[in-house]
Amino acid sequence: MYVSNTIRGHRLRETTCPTGFNWTNLKAELRAIWECNVKAWKIELAYPISFIRECISPLIMLLPFLIYGLVLIGGRYSENLELLVGTGDVVTFLFTGYLIMGFIGTAVWAMGFSIRREQWFGTLESIFVTPTSRLSLVLGMALHSTVHQSLGTAIEFTVIYLIFGLALKIGGILPALGILALMMLALYGFGILVSALSLVLKEGWIVAEGLHSIMMILSPVAYPLIVLPNLAQQVSVVFPTAPALVGIRAFLMENYTPEVVGNIFLHLLALDIAWILFGIFVFHLTDIYVRRRGGLEKY
């Protein structure tokens, strides 16, 4: 199907509208995702101070917890931690934990609020009437945010490595990155769900804040999973961060004994499918609901 427009006799570029699931449409959607990502970068780089601040944010968030851990134990090695997970290096344990924390923020805040932000800018309706999938907007934001977070994590790693030194297994980096990628896919599903909530709830930040806090408590970021009550440990398997953290630490840290026994890769793969399908399903339903009620532009 072709859309053609003319302004004062000049014919504008003809564009095919993507309908159905085929390679051409997939390419068009990928391009839309890329353009959303480029747009987010352009806006971000227009405020260089904000950009720099956000890049050092992961480091700033980690520092107080590192200092607190060191003061509490009176050094870098904790016997209690070693009894629980086989390694007592608090700095490396916390660093690997906070590595993940930033990516939780990517899913909840960056993706979840991509739609709300367009609403603030007054551009949501214009975007929603384009023949591209609504999800492309959310995924474009996810791409931007993932790259941004990776940049912040690289800075965090460099500074912590230079100041404290990190006992990481080089050979474990590749499988750890694989786990990170699988975790990100599930978090994207989670982010799509949060963005759907912001369509209905508008000021969805309260829900997002709540979900973020729950995920943070149930993820073994600053403590091993086994210190949580049994019920919390069981609920934590529903979120990708808990198995991902256990897996990443198992590959990266010397002598680390995983708290959860099982195939982390299969577990994450199952969570990926479940969260992405659930996220898309809820997004689809809320999209229909909001447009039927005419509440797309309402604040």
Binding site: I49, L63, P64, I67
Partner: peptide
């Protein structure tokens, strides 16, 4: 907004909220 955030970082790290 950025200034407020930066100031928050200063309080976050340099004030004895979590450690003496």
């Amino acid at each position: 907004h950025d200034l407020a955030h930066s100031l928050e970082y200063v309080f976050y790290v340099f004030a004895p909220v979590r450690y003496p």
